[in-house]
Amino acid sequence: MCTVIIDFDPGRAWPIAVLGLRDEQPGRAWDPPGAWWPGLGDGVRGIHDREAGGAWLATNDDAPGGPRAAVVLNRREDLDMPAAGWTSRGVLPLEAVTTGVDAEDARSARSWNLVELRPDGVAVTSWDGSSLRSIDVAPGLHLVTHEGPDHLDVPRVHRWRPAFLDVPSPIGPLDGATAASWEPWLRTLRSTTSVPADADEAIVRVDDHDGLRLASLSVTALSLGTDGAVLRNARLAEPGRLPEEFVWE
């Protein structure tokens, strides 16, 4: 199950920093960040799921009201399939950064948490199969998992949130003058691999769930400011295991 680390500091030039671990079936094909949805506008980019056509994470530099980003995480509820079939959760980030999430799509998908990011705010919306709930997230550092933000009863949050709190957060994009500011988070991420990938406390994970094997497939670094989003992604050649050197796309 995915893990997303967020730092929100409204006083920074780049208020939003996100480090995302995407967990998915290793055989499911996907594409690196790009403008895979030309019908949604030139500013929409993201990580493209080839099977369903949606996005795990999407950004839009041209969104009404300013740049925004969104990322979807699975929840654990086992829901009954609607008569019309499931809506892919991958439509939700794309809707979030363009028109806004459609309520019918939201309720006809398997359970989810959606993190919506703007330079002036962060919100997490959850669908558990019975109700839609949305909360605004305060400035500071947060770990979001299948349970939502900062649930300390989730072992990986309890174990590793203090470690991320103890190091400086990135102050800008993972390139140019601010690239080095990502090193404390990346070192901390590497330190989490001291536990096995199938351990409850693992962030870089291999997870058997509902008869499926899910594993961490990529690491995403996102910076969001008033001028737009800078998105970098590193594919893990071996699911559930960090490479010696990240190759950023």
Rank of each mutant, 00 (worst) to 15 (best):
L40Q: 03
R133Y: 02
V115C: 06
R68A: 11
A58H: 02
V44H: 02
A84G: 12
G46V: 07
G85C: 12
P67K: 08
R118H: 14
T87G: 01
P67Q: 08
P32D: 11
L73T: 05
R89T: 01
D42K: 13
H48K: 07
L73K: 03
N74H: 14
R89H: 07
D42Y: 08
D78F: 14
N60V: 00
T125C: 09
E77T: 04
E116W: 06
D49K: 11
R118M: 07
S108H: 13
D128R: 04
S108L: 10
A96N: 03
M81G: 10
N113D: 03
E51S: 15
D102C: 04
A29F: 06
A109W: 02
G39V: 10
P38K: 07
G85W: 13
A96C: 01
A123M: 04
P33Q: 11
G41I: 00
W36H: 15
A55N: 04
D80E: 15
M81C: 13
G54D: 02
L117R: 06
R133G: 06
D78T: 14
L73P: 01
S126R: 15
D120E: 12
A106Y: 05
S108W: 05
G46P: 05
P67R: 07
E51R: 15
P64K: 13
G129Q: 08
D31A: 15
V124C: 09
D31T: 14
S88F: 12
A35H: 14
S131E: 11
G100V: 10
D136V: 11
A55H: 05
D136M: 03
V91I: 15
P93V: 08
V72P: 04
D120R: 11
A63N: 01
V71W: 02
T99P: 00
W56I: 09
E77H: 13
A35M: 05
A29H: 13
R133S: 13
A52D: 05
W127D: 05
G66I: 00
H48N: 11
D105K: 10
R75P: 01
D42S: 15
R50I: 10
A96R: 02
R75Q: 10
L73R: 04
G90P: 01
E77Y: 13
G100Q: 08
S126C: 09
A69N: 03
G85Y: 12
D136R: 15
L79T: 05
P33N: 14
W36N: 00
P93L: 06
V97E: 00
A123P: 01
A35C: 09
D31Q: 15
D49I: 14
G129A: 11
P38G: 10
P93W: 05
I135K: 07
W86F: 14
D136C: 02
A103C: 00
R68Q: 13
